[in-house]
Design a binder for these strands. Structure first.
Lengths: 165, 165
DNA sequence: CAATTAGCTTCGGTAATTAAATTATTATTT
DNA sequence: AAATAATAATTTAATTACCGAAGCTAATTG
């Protein structure tokens, strides 16, 4: 077995593990994976339009619209008409929504961060370099990643009050 | 920004790129991402039970059952009652299903393989080591990866006409 | 044989998804 | 400015994804 296959298999293991565990986490939080991803995007941006969300999640605006309906019904987000361009709607988290997303961190946080930080210095450096290389190979744009920068904060805080809902 | 955050962002870029591109590929093939994953699992295993599929995909058997219904209706797979244990059903690809899955390879194959193989030797080695390390951190079980070993064959073979199976 | 367990399916319901059509607003063109 | 085009969001109708509970069939166990 050559290295291409080996790396592909490792990548698939990463994808599977993340997805499977993410589903578990979502159910624990009383939300769906899609709903959590929405909340994460809004948290990372502070304020986004449905259009922006649809691009980041790779689904149509119609999908986002109905998804937002449900999240409004759950009092997780609010729609605010934009002042500068009244065609646009700004999506913001409610207090409840912020608690929900901070109490339901994403699977990478849970399974990855602690172990990563326990690694030797040189190994961390190698992993960072390799991951960025792979992301580059996949043409992964910064558009996808930068909104989630704020998520990095989570592993530093104590989400000890999981008042599940 | 520390290395933990940097690596998390890179990982998310990988996840997003794979998912977004996978959705595009699926639509091009006239299938959904879930349906393609089902076909990939059956291809990799040769013959699987609905229960095994449900474990690998991380969904309930009920979900698989209805999914199989649709794929049978599309003539992509067949249900075959097991002889050794007649409670079980063996899922196998039809000729049409095999063509479909081989004609719609997964996003990693498409966007990754060629570029990876163009890398310097040392860089390939580094990436393999790093990816396997990360997969290990995420506790990705071998259960998830080994079924997909056969997928690695795809980029080497010509899916012309493989008689027999 | 009766009870239990295992594997799969069916049923009822919620959520996710899209294409197409609609509404409201902004931008452009004549 | 009036007409036209383009953009942002939503609604509608339809399909797919998903699950728990209940039901069915086959295997196992007492």
């Amino acid at each position: 077995m050559d290295r291409t296959d080996t790396s592909l298999i490792a990548l698939r293991r990463i994808l599977r593990a993340t997805e499977l565990y993410g589903r578990t986490l979502a159910q624990t939080a009383g939300l769906t994976p899609v709903q959590i991803r929405l909340l994460q995007i809004v948290l990372g941006q502070g304020s986004v339009t449905p259009k922006q969300i649809s691009v980041q999640m790779g689904v149509s605006p119609a999908t986002i619209s109905t998804l937002l309906d449900r999240m409004v019904a759950k009092s997780m987000i609010e729609r605010q008409r934009s002042d500068v361009d009244r065609r646009q709607t700004n999506i913001v988290l409610t207090e409840e929504g912020r608690k929900a997303v901070e109490g339901a961190p994403d699977p990478l946080q849970q399974k990855y961060v602690k172990e990563f930080e326990a690694l030797e210095d040189w190994e961390q450096a190698m992993i960072v370099a390799a991951l960025e290389r792979v992301a580059g190979l996949l043409n992964a744009s910064d558009l996808d990643a930068s909104p989630l920068l704020d998520m990095g904060e989570i592993h530093r805080t104590h989400p000890s009050d999981k008042t599940g809902g």
